[in-house]
Every structure is written in structure tokens, then in C-alpha cells.
Simulated scan of single mutants.
Amino acid sequence: MYKRSVYEKLFDTLVYVLLIGLMIATLYPFVYVLMASLSDPKYIVQNRGLLLWPHGFTLGTYKYVFENPMIVTGFRNTMLYVIAGTCLNMFMTALGAYSLSRRYLRCGGAVMLMIVFTMFFSGGLIPAYLNVRNLGLLDTPWALIIPSAVNTFNLIVMRTAFAAIPESMEESAKMDGANDFMILFRIFIPLTLPVFAVILLFYLVQHWNSWFPALVYLRSRDLYPVQLILREILIASSVDSMVAGAVAQLDQQPLGETIKYATIIVVTLPIICVYPFMQKYFTKGIMIGAVKG
């Protein structure tokens, strides 16, 4: 039986201490926001520092958050952008990855080089804005869906996974009368399901957390995603409409602070709940898409 040396034990101890420290540093801000949202507003304003449990437990701030019509509208718009955008993303990425993974594709290397080029160089914000405006997408939901139809990194990962599938399987399917769409959806995607699930998660998080494109391309507040509403609440402190109906014994400033924390939890929690269902695919999917160039 192998006996570990003192230096190896010391190294493992340092690694564990470092990882625990990183875990605490990563988790505590979320814990603080959650506990602050459940605490008495006056306590949060009057006391600063460590917060590990709620003081003066209350759910009143969440009531004000859900009574805000912009939060409800923002969630509705975000769900539209997430569902429509992710479906388009996965469809376009799968088609592009399948085509580029085939060795018989003419000029496939040149096309791939042009796609990779976009990872390092882009036209910038102004050309992108002019392009969206000239296409007639300005101030429409499509401005948040079509321009981000394909992510280059996700395309490369899926292409690498597809390229690892033996050509004999594709040839056998074609001999049985299958076309390219049948091969893609009945053979390639089921065989690379971990990669497909991880890229799906990447696109979901991308759309859920996106707020800057909406800030640039949208003018109608009825089209704002929930992340842009959250930005207004945190940066512009636009909580006046939410605290207007507060009870008299609570000042508006303390209640406004806890409403900000409650809004962060409400906006963040749905996407966090998705991770446990995708976790089993995450490491495996990244490895499948990363090995073999």
C-alpha cells in the first residue's frame, strides 16, 4: 500500500484550505443577499457586517417585489427570450457543427477559420447597432434573439464532439436511406447528449443574464427583460413605486434596500435551480467536446 509523504499531505491540506476559502468567498455574497432580503429593513440599514441568518424574519419585501408590474412583465419577456433564443441557438449551432465536422465539406477549413476569426475580432458596438437598425429589428424582441443566434465557442465544442463520431456510422445510416437531418437528430445528437446538455445550459444562462443588448436595442419598457429591470432597481434605485404602499412605520429608505436584495434573489433563483439537473452532464460534456481537435 502506497504511503504518502509529509509533503504530499501538506500539499493536499493546502489545496483543501484554498478550495474551502474559495467556496466561502463565492457562496457568502449570495447568503448575505438572501438573509438581508428576509431581515427587518431597519436592521439592515443600521447594522453592517457579517450576516448569516435573518434578523426580524419577514417576507414582506417579496410581496412588494411581486406586486411590481414591471417585474412580472420582465419575467414574461425573459422567458420568451430564453425559450425562443435557446431553441434558435441550439438549432443553428447543431446545423453548423454537423456541417463543419464532415471531412468531405468543401472549403470547410476556410469556413472554420473565418468563424474562429470572429472570436478575436469584431466590428464593435456601433456597426452591430447599425446592422440591427438596418434589418428593422430595433425595438423588437428579435433584436435580442437573431444577432446572438450562434456562439462561436459553443459551435467549436459541438463540432469537436461530432467529429469524434466514426464516419462508418454516418455511411451506414445513409445506406439505410437516412438523410442528413435524420443522421443529425437521430444519431449525432443522442450520441453527444452530454455536450448538447452543457451547451444548452450555456445558452440558457447567456439569455437569462443578458441585459446590455436590451439596453442598446430596446426603447419600449414593455419589452424589457427582468435583468434590465433589476439593473434599474440596483443602479438607478427606482424602487419608489414599490415602496409607495409600504406601511407607515417603515421608512422608505430601509424598505428600498431590502427590496433590492429580494429582487436579486427573485431574479437569480430560477436559473440556479436549473444547475442541479445539468450538473451530471457538465464535466463529461466539456471533456467530450474538448478532447481531439
Rank of each mutant, 00 (worst) to 15 (best):
F91L: 15
R106P: 00
C273S: 09
P276D: 08
G289I: 15
M112I: 09
L230S: 06
P127M: 02
I271R: 00
V216D: 01
V65R: 00
A84E: 03
G74P: 06
T86S: 12
P194T: 05
S220A: 07
E170A: 14
K280V: 00
H207N: 07
L135E: 08
W211E: 02
D12N: 10
S5D: 12
T140N: 12
L34M: 14
L250Y: 15
M114K: 01
Y261W: 02
G74T: 00
P225L: 10
I189F: 01
G108A: 15
C87M: 12
S241R: 15
P29E: 02
A197Q: 09
M92C: 15
L218Q: 15
R231V: 00
M90I: 13
K42I: 03
T78D: 00
I165F: 01
Y28K: 10
I156S: 04
I44N: 13
L191F: 02
I288Q: 14
F66Q: 05
G85S: 07
I146F: 14
G124C: 10
F196G: 04
L59V: 04
A214T: 01
F277S: 07
V132L: 03
G289T: 07
L113A: 11
R221I: 00
T78W: 01
L59Y: 02
S172T: 04
Y64I: 00
G109A: 14
D180G: 10
M287S: 08
V72F: 05
I199D: 00
L34P: 02
F75V: 03
T86H: 03
F121D: 00
V45K: 14
T73M: 13
L200D: 00
L250F: 11
L80C: 03
L125G: 15
F117M: 14
Q249R: 14
G108I: 11
L105A: 12
I165L: 10
T118R: 07
G136Y: 14
N179A: 12
M70W: 13
K292Y: 09
F153A: 08
C273W: 13
S210R: 01
T118H: 07
A84K: 02
Q206G: 14
D40A: 08
V132E: 01
T58N: 09
I265T: 10
P54A: 06
T258A: 09
F185T: 15
A173Y: 04
A84I: 06
H55P: 03
E167G: 15
P166M: 06
A97V: 03
F277D: 07
T86N: 08
V111S: 04
V291K: 03
T192N: 07
L113I: 12
S210N: 06
S220Y: 05
D176G: 14
Y281H: 07
Y43L: 11
F153G: 01
G123F: 02
N47C: 11
F188L: 06
A149H: 10
L204T: 02
V72N: 09
V31R: 06
Q252A: 09
I126K: 04
W142V: 08
G109I: 06
F30P: 08
L230I: 04
M79T: 15
S39K: 11
I146W: 05
T73V: 00
K174V: 09
G49D: 11
K284V: 04
I271C: 11
L230E: 13
S148A: 14
P127S: 04
F202T: 14
Y104M: 09
F75A: 05
T93C: 14
L184H: 04
R48I: 00
S5Q: 05
T283P: 05
F181Y: 10
